[in-house]
Design a protein around this nucleic acid. Sequence first.
DNA 1: ATCCGATCAGTCGGATCCGAGTATGTGCGC
DNA 2: GCGCACATACTCGGATCCGACTGATCGGAT
Lengths: 198, 198
Amino acid sequence: METESTMKPKRPANPLALAVLGLLLEQPMHPHAIATTLRERELDRAFKVTTGSLYDVVRSLERAGWIAAQETARVGGRPERTVYTHTGQGREQFVAWLDELIRVPAKEYPKFISAISYLGALGRQAAREALTERAGHLAAEADRARAAWRDVVDAGRAPRLFMLELEYALRMIEAELAWVEQVAADIDSGTLAWPVAA
Amino acid sequence: METESTMKPKRPANPLALAVLGLLLEQPMHPHAIATTLRERELDRAFKVTTGSLYDVVRSLERAGWIAAQETARVGGRPERTVYTHTGQGREQFVAWLDELIRVPAKEYPKFISAISYLGALGRQAAREALTERAGHLAAEADRARAAWRDVVDAGRAPRLFMLELEYALRMIEAELAWVEQVAADIDSGTLAWPVAA
DNA sequence: ATCCGATCAGTCGGATCCGAGTATGTGCGC
DNA sequence: GCGCACATACTCGGATCCGACTGATCGGAT
């Protein structure tokens, strides 16, 4: 039996909460503004921003005491806007959370890995084709990322620090592309044995 | 207004369903056996196998008509076991799903990316330390993966085809490690400007 | 004989997720 | 001065997820 005082109010699981906190640290906002700001800054590349989840996340952040409702006003006949601020605790927890996310790699389950696990079932030829198509998509994505990076950083429109996440994504895409191309080549050359009926 | 016949019964979202299907294609099984088999084969590296989700996933697969209950028997006084088989439709859909997962890269939201987006907030020094610790974890993980790969493939205990998923994971870890080390080094050398107060 | 921990097989309910919906306000073309 | 697309701001409910629990059985050490 655990009393209320002994149980720790574990942090929100949804990374979107991190984004919310990050914005509120700059200035108070209402949820809708948070969503639009996130999209403006293209942080929706890194966070899955869906309205439904956003309001849930904000509520749970409030329950945890990391943010607090500041005022709730109505302009015209529109729905009310509730403006939230971060709390002192919120600031601390934000940094702690961030720190841990960086320090210790979280176990993830990318869909591609699950698919590779059953690649054999696709048959040699179909696998080769599917991989080749993927390689095309990846190459295109990498190009887009490189272009976006050049546009911003080379032009001096923002320091590299703020493009790190794009840089990382690019490196990962490149690595995946290299591997996919290698496997496709190994299928072609017969280097990769295909023990299953195909 | 859409009638029942016109609406397509979209495929299960949870990749665990793919794993279930994959096993049932080999032979009929009951959920508990599916879970243990998945763990034996270490497919729980690629799929998040939790009992709760498993039973949900099986139910939804049955609703979709991709698998079917074959018999439900009781041995002794234990809970009943319901054995499931794949259906013809299940076989087709499995391949189609697999094919698409390979062909088109899905948008993912790794936690690390969300953290990098706010790396600036950590401050120069703390960021450098956190990244260094991560690098350590990643290096250890890479070592483990390399060892596991050698154990199995070099020893000829299984063909490379069945280790692809481990190979892929390893390549991605290596790429991430390289990037993390680079950024840490750039912080040290002052190459990476830190515009925010720190 | 019997007690204990591991194994077997599955249920349950709370938490979370998120797409679709609601309802008003604003700007602009004609 | 009317219609209509778009923006504003949030709510709702179904679907899904998953940790914690139940409760029986089995094997072996005592």
